[in-house]
Design a protein around this nucleic acid. Structure first.
Length: 465
RNA sequence: GGCCCCGUGGUGUAACGGUUAGCACGUCGGGUUUUCAACCCGGAAGCGUGGGGUUCAACUCCCCCCGGGGCUACCA
């Protein structure tokens, strides 16, 4: 037995600028397969359409892929750069009689089919100028796609049109280009979306005419939106770029995406990327379409956030702020290292996404503006906030670590006979400017004695004046 | 219309010719609690409530129907 040669996979995004989550999952599965088997993943950009295919669009796709940490082995090669090979093979096909020129228009084809009981279109070779090139499809037999996920799928040749493989001006079309590329790039496994299943017999037919061995195919079920229909670009969080903006972590996205259409035997839900690489198998991918559910992603992302080291947490937050809010990034990065660290420590368990982190700890880096609405929420009409008592107690605290602060304030609660909430919430508003923050003792300790006392004092004068 | 794919709770999935059909998100109730989360405990909720078969036995296999989706371009 020869040892099996390492597989060679390819990911072929359409360069419209956005990496949609369906495409991202396809990229992930390809990547997992390549990683898990010692094979290679190559990228091919599908772009015979000059309108959509701009260098900027392509770069956006590549950037999203890099951010997701799905690396590939070779740089993308534009289809324009591959064109000569396509036209060369096209010429061979025509010369060998596998393809022919046919000036028939779409209307002609429709009429022909109507007259022939809906059978696959068969044209007459006529080498007129401007005639498109069609592949000659056999009249009998069937073309079978041996799909790794679905098993054999049979397409009778008689119902298949002699399809166009090149335009009248000689430019090659998708089904020719992709087959030529797969052959020339030595692709062994094609893992792509289900929307390509119907194209596969065409590509198989081209490959056969070319005399090239077919790759293995696996067609992934499509992803649907929350309404059960095809996932639309209008859906929130429909692309990796949007997920990034919303503060999700690449590792969480990889985990979530992997679970969309695939599951482990033992129901493991949270998997590191290493585990994914090790455990993923294309044969276990399901056959039915799945619905993208951002809520579960949020939950999963929270789990990954909590598993982050403080260093990673700080680094990720810093980068997120720099990208989306440079001013805040400046305030964060200008602060002492220990304050940054403490800030991360007290929010780590509370935030589900990076986007949620900053509002919770902003008060440690930026002086909060007074918020009348927040005060109204914590004011008790009958007594007023016991801020003065709290201030005294904090002044007299032995230290200013969370434990000392807690002891001092608990004494206030005890002595005043008030509910803990009535004591703590006003302090929270005084030092953070909002009613929502990390734990009050942690928040005070993180802010430090000096700033805490000062903010409470000024809140007090504000309230009395 | 033609060709093709799919159908386990609201969502993602697991298992299996014989199980009380499991797990997770969400949801509901309770607990913890200084806010919001997180966390802990518990509950409700599913095999397309369709029709025929095969079988001692089908959610599981076959046919039909119904429902959803894809392709049907001189797009990719």
């Amino acid at each position: 037995m020869n040892p099996p040669s390492p597989p060679r996979l390819r990911f072929a995004p359409s360069p419209t600028g956005a990496l949609h989550i369906g495409g991202a999952r396809t990229a992930l599965y390809n990547w997992l397969l390549a990683r898990g088997s010692g094979g290679a993943l190559v990228l091919r950009i599908e772009d015979t359409d000059r309108e959509r295919s701009t260098p900027e669009n392509t770069e956006q796709i590549l950037d999203a892929l890099r951010w997701l940490e799905l690396d590939w082995d070779e740089g993308p090669e534009s289809q324009y750069e591959r064109r000569e090979r396509h036209t060369g093979r096209l010429k061979e096909l025509v010369e060998a009689g596998h393809a022919y020129h046919d000036p028939a228009t779409a209307a002609d084809v429709r009429a022909w089919k109507e007259a022939n009981g809906g059978a696959g279109y068969r044209g007459e070779p006529r080498a007129e100028p401007g005639a498109a090139v069609r592949l000659r499809v056999p009249d009998d037999g069937e073309t079978v796609v041996d799909d790794l996920i679905r098993g054999p799928v049979r397409f009778p040749n008689a119902t298949q049109d002699d399809f166009v493989i090149a335009r009248g001006d000689g430019t090659p079309l998708y089904n020719l280009a992709v087959a030529v590329d797969d052959a020339e790039m030595g692709i062994t496994d094609v893992v792509r979306g289900d929307d390509h299943l119907s194209n596969t017999p065409k590509q198989l037919l081209v490959l056969e005419a070319l005399g090239a061995p077919p790759p293995r195919y696996a067609h992934l079920p499509l992803l649907h939106g929350p309404d059960g229909r095809k996932l639309s670009k209008r859906d929130r969080a429909a692309s990796v770029q949007e997920l990034r903006d919303l503060g999700y972590l690449p590792a969480a996205i990889r985990n979530y995406l992997a679970l969309l259409g695939w599951g482990t035997e033992d129901d493991t839900t949270i998997l590191t990327t290493e585990e994914l690489v090790e455990r993923f198998s294309i044969e276990r991918v399901g056959r039915s379409s799945a619905v993208f559910d951002e809520r579960k992603l949020r939950w999963l992302n929270g789990r990954f956030m909590r598993a982050l080291s403080l260093d990673d947490h700080e680094d990720l937050l810093s980068r997120h702020l720099r990208r989306y809010s440079p001013e805040d990034a400046g305030a964060f990065e200008a602060a002492p290292a220990d304050r940054r660290r403490v800030a991360c420590e007290i929010v780590r368990d509370k935030a589900q996404t990076l986007e949620e982190v900053w509002p919770l700890i902003r008060f440690l880096f930026v002086e909060p503006a007074p918020d009348p609405a927040a005060w109204r929420k914590v004011m008790r009409a009958d007594t007023g906030p016991p801020l003065a008592e709290s201030l005294e107690a904090l002044r007299g605290a032995d230290g200013f670590d969370a434990g000392s602060v807690e002891a001092a304030l608990e004494a206030v609660v005890e002595r005043s006979g008030r509910k803990a909430k009535d004591v703590y919430q006003p302090i929270r508003v005084a030092i953070t400017g909002t009613t929502v923050s990390p734990g009050i003792f942690d928040s005070l300790a993180a802010l430090g004695r000096e700033d805490s006392l000062r903010r409470i004092e000024s809140a007090l004068t504000e309230l009395n004046g």
